[in-house]
Nucleic acid binder design. Structure first.
Length: 926
RNA sequence: GCCCGGGUGGUGGAAUGGUAGACACGCAGGACUUAAAAUCCUGUGGCCAUCGCGGCUGUGCGGGUUCGAGUCCCGCCCCGGGUACCA
């Protein structure tokens, strides 16, 4: 029997399908292990060879864990709502559900070919109403919850309403808007329903408020931040402006502290944790309020360097600060207004790239809380309205931006520490040294000074210590069609009502057009019957939820995918707990991974879950890049290089032959007007054939670079097992690496060689019933040891190497015993499941190799009696000597020093030191 | 700027402080073939060599610790990723 991969694959696949071997049961007395991939967005382009990298990795690991005796959950599904399907619908009129279903079926066919062990009976798709019913349900729970800070827990809003009606909100300590007014019980009870609704919005974890969004008038829609490039829309390049609209938000900031603290318990890479920490952006500092001269209002400032308060020489507030118009004096008013206008017309990019500082004096002054000095108040766009209080106390000697500002507007630079240097050139933010010119903190160090200032501020009521987070609440409204509808409607008085849980899901309406309405409303607003479905005069929420809604909890649904009563049944959740190993790209570090952690914590608070964190351990696969081929300068007359040539037209050695070039000319309009004989400067190979040598470049695998490689083609040509092992062999899972088909023959050869351990050239079986030789057992157990250790540390690239070494060594033996072959099949089964399954059957096994037990190594086969020691003289390698491992050290010394090769270098001198590292090395120091 | 990674042959990459370059690709030579493909064997960091003894040198650069450093420490350079007028 020859190694015929396509035959092998179909035999293995049939066996698996017939026995439903990948179906996972929650009823099990085995320990559980949950291996999860980030589920894909099913795009119309299908998979390229970069996509399966993580899936192959997790598949191997899942199979390995199963063979170790775990009950392994390894599911797959689809993140199926999203913009591309909707845009395709706008262009073609096809319903997104139809195209999405087609794409999903393409993906599944591609998956099938690679031999993944997914349990498809647990498949989920976020656009399936049976799934998004629960996405809507979670939203309702968020809407009906508030966050109790002392309890560090989400609590049902009804408790809060009861509390308000009994004692007002004086004693509540909730995660809410800082500006929430205080009220008594009688005030609360006197509020109108609308007023009560307004107040509750400050507490709910899902709430509605007015906010600025990116509005693109030309496209008639709101855009997400990542749809805007350089201040204009990604599609079409139209200008984008800020527009105030009422939007839904999720109060993720309530969980900021828990999200930060939870990172400590996770086995993620330090860089992933660091990205989340940066995003959460905790900074500890203080609030200080500065009284305005001749005004009742105060300007509140947040600072992380309250110790520098005696260095304050002016205040700067954001142009959008609410007090600007109130405090601006008449003689400064027109300048201020002009400045604000100038700022508003600048895009964010322009504002950030502007290296010079600019600002404008308001004419107002504040009083320094300690020195009572008058300080001028400026507006400047380097102060952001969205961070802290939108106002800063400027300390030119300690902050470079304040310093530049002070130079430009001639404001004093006050030294405050004896360690500050070069203040005539730049600011010095040192925390070293003792304070000077600083009243009651003079002579103190940084820590004591900070403490003392905060103490004084708190004692006098001027300020207080404060923790600030950079993270903002997450916008949750999209003016789109292809997303989850909100289970929310408004009555004629503007009161918000929820759709009863038993009426979920609220399914998407049928619409005539998927185009945005042009008024900033989603296309759903045109489905008037649907909009009024809760009674005339009522109006359904017509926005839909964002992409991250469905992806924030999908991993829970896999545990119990068909449960009609709850999003995950408690027995299933108790058994599966959370994800043990999560494999996916690091590009989701702060989006998906942060939202999922937030939802998970919330669902724990409301007793749906028993675990605090969703993903215990993470592996981030690196990107597989494409290797593109481009023309070089002057190869084509009048062209200075840089034209991508499709890989299918090129030959080994990075060249394109003339006949291929002419074929390409017929398909590609970039070349069709060229005369191949005149306009192209050809080189000639040794056979006289004309070609161009192209220049290779490694870049993202993408349609537009014509460098996409389809896994189907690779599987077709080399087989699924070769493809799987080659992707792993390419390099460590977490680094970016270029796809290069050149190396794949090495892995293909290996699998053929592996096969030849079982069958000779004429296809006759070589299963020898004789017992294994010592040498054979040594090779086997050495290989088992290496593979097991490498699997544990996720080094799958070296696993493949070690298979090659083992098989090369075994091939040299006269025969290999059936027992050894059996172990080899089991060892390779996670990597090359098709080949392993067929060999397993051919050896006479009825069961599937998927359920065989992974071999364990026995150290007794690995014991060596001697070792070929490398001998160093003064740290330099001078030769090797085979020495028995149980030899006495004095004898070893004698043996080594008397060796000719070594004696040459020791020159007969007595060594100063003689180092023997047993089983490793010997170093003679002269 | 700040925070993470990383820099090793022609290429992808190996190497618990212990023989640097495993494994593979590519390349060169050979065997088998009328020939090619496939397969197998040999060689392959660089320099020197009285090319089958051997020697020198070599993991971005400069120092250090150590019997011994790709690996640890200090100071730089470069590349990739993240992030930013964040007060």
């Amino acid at each position: 029997m020859e190694y015929n991969f396509s035959e092998i694959e179909s035999i293995a696949r049939n066996k698996w399908t017939k026995s439903q071997v990948y179906k996972v049961d929650t009823e099990s007395n085995k320990p559980k292990y949950y291996v999860l991939d980030m589920f894909p967005y099913p795009s119309g382009a299908g998979l390229h060879v970069g996509h399966p990298l993580g899936y192959i990795f997790s598949d191997i690991y899942a199979r390995y864990k199963r063979m170790q005796g775990f009950n392994v959950l390894h599911p797959m599904g689809f993140d199926a709502f999203g913009l591309p399907a909707e845009q395709y619908a706008i262009q073609t009129g096809q319903h997104p559900a139809v195209t999405t279903a087609q794409n999903i079926s393409t993906y599944k066919k591609q998956f099938e070919k690679i031999g993944f062990c997914f349990d498809w009976s647990r498949e989920v798709s976020t656009c399936d109403p049976a799934y998004y019913k629960w996405t809507q349900w979670i939203f309702l729970q968020l809407f009906n919850s508030w966050y109790d800070k002392p309890k560090e827990k989400a609590i049902n809003i009804s408790e809060l309403i009861t509390l308000f009606s009994q004692e007002g909100n004086h004693s509540t300590n909730a995660a809410c808007d800082d500006k929430t007014l205080l009220f008594s019980a009688s005030e609360w009870n006197a509020y109108s329903p609308l007023e009560q609704q307004e107040v509750l919005m400050d507490y709910r974890l899902a709430y509605r408020k007015e906010s600025f969004v990116n509005w693109c008038p030309a496209l008639g829609t709101v855009l997400a931040n990542d749809e805007i490039i350089n201040g204009v829309s990604e599609r079409g390049g139209y200008p984008v402006e800020k527009k105030k609209m009422s939007q839904w938000f999720l109060r993720i900031t309530a969980y900021a502290e828990r999200l930060l603290k939870g990172l400590e318990s996770l086995e993620w890479t330090e860089s992933m944790k660091e990205m989340q920490r940066n995003w959460i952006g905790k900074s500890t500092g203080a609030m200080v309020s500065f009284s305005l001269k001749n005004h009742e209002d105060k300007i509140e400032v947040f600072t992380t360097r309250v110790d520098t308060i005696f260095g304050v020489s002016f205040l700067v507030i954001a142009p959008e600060h609410e007090l600007v118009s109130k405090i601006t004096t008449n003689e400064n008013r027109s300048d201020i207004e002009n400045y604000i206008k100038a700022c508003a017309s600048k895009s964010d990019i322009e504002r950030q790239s502007e290296k010079r500082v600019s600002g404008q004096f308001t004419g107002a002054y504040v009083i320094h809380p300690f020195t009572q000095k008058e300080l001028p108040v400026y507006i400047a766009d380097y102060v952001l309205s969205g961070y802290g209080t939108g106002a800063v106390m400027a300390v030119p000697s300690g902050d470079q931006r304040d310093y530049l500002f002070s130079k430009k507007y001639n404001l004093p630079v006050l030294p405050i520490s004896d360690a500050q240097q070069n203040l005539d050139k730049e600011a010095d933010s040192t925390k070293e040294g003792k304070y000077i010119n600083s009243d009651f903190i003079n002579g103190l160090g940084y820590r004591e000074a900070t403490q003392l200032v905060i103490q004084k501020l708190e004692a006098t009521g001027i300020g207080h210590g404060k923790v600030n987070f950079r993270m903002r609440d997450a916008g949750y409204s999209r003016q789109r069609y292809w997303g989850e509808p909100f289970p929310i409607y408004y009555d004629s008085n503007g009161i918000i009502h929820t759709i009863p849980e038993e009426d979920l899901p609220v399914t998407l309406p049928v619409v005539d057009s998927y185009k945005p309405t042009g008024t900033g409303e989603s296309p759903i607003a045109n489905a008037s019957e649907w909009v009024e479905r809760m009674g005339s005069g009522t109006r359904m929420e017509t926005d839909t939820m964002p992409g991250y809604a469905g992806s924030s909890w999908y991993f829970l649904r896999y545990m119990d995918p068909n449960n009609k009563d709850t999003l995950v049944g408690s027995s299933a959740q108790q058994y599966w707990q959370n994800v043990d190993l999560y494999v996916g790209g690091s590009e989701h570090a702060v989006g998906h991974l942060l939202y999922s952690r937030f939802w998970h914590k919330f669902l724990k608070d409301i007793d749906v879950l028993s675990t605090e964190e969703p993903f215990k351990k993470m592996v981030n696969q690196g990107m597989i890049q494409g290797r593109s081929l481009l023309t070089k300068d002057n190869q084509i007359k009048g062209l200075s290089g840089g034209l991508h040539i499709p890989l299918s037209f090129t030959s080994i050695g990075d060249k394109i032959y003339k006949d291929n070039f002419c074929r390409l000319q017929k398909e590609d309009n970039r070349f069709e007007n060229l005369n191949a004989d005149i306009d192209v400067i050809w080189e000639l190979d040794k056979d006289g054939k004309a070609f161009l040598s192209l220049s290779p470049q490694v870049e993202k695998m993408s349609k537009r670079y014509l460098n996409v490689v389809n896994p189907d083609d690779v599987v077709e040509q080399y087989g699924a097992d070769t493809f799987r092992m080659y992707e792993m062999f390419l390099g460590p899972i977490d680094t970016a690496k270029p796809w290069d088909t050149n190396g794949i023959s090495g892995v293909a050869n290996f699998l053929r060689k592996f096969w030849r351990l079982f069958y000779d050239e004429s296809g006759n079986p070589k299963f020898s019933e004789v017992s294994a030789s010592d040498e054979e057992l040594k090779i086997l157990h050495k290989t088992i040891k290496k593979i097991s250790e490498d699997l544990e540390r996720f080094g799958l690239n070296t696993c493949v190497s070690n298979f090659m070494i083992g098989v090369n060594e075994l091939s040299k033996l006269a025969s290999v015993s059936k027992a050894t072959l059996t172990d080899l099949i089991k060892l390779i089964a996670p990597f090359a499941p098709h080949t392993a399954e067929v060999l397993w059957s051919n050896l006479g096994n009825e069961s599937s190799v998927v359920d065989a037990s992974f071999p364990k190594f026995d150290t007794k086969y690995l014991i060596e009696s001697s070792f070929n020691y490398p001998i160093q003289v003064n740290g330099k390698h001078r030769g090797n000597i085979e020495i028995a491992l149980d030899m006495d050290e004095s004898e070893v010394r004698k043996l080594v020093l008397e060796d000719d090769r070594i004696a040459k270098f020791t020159e007969g001198k007595e060594p100063r030191k003689f180092i023997v590292v047993k089983g490793r090395i010997i170093n003679v120091v002269i």
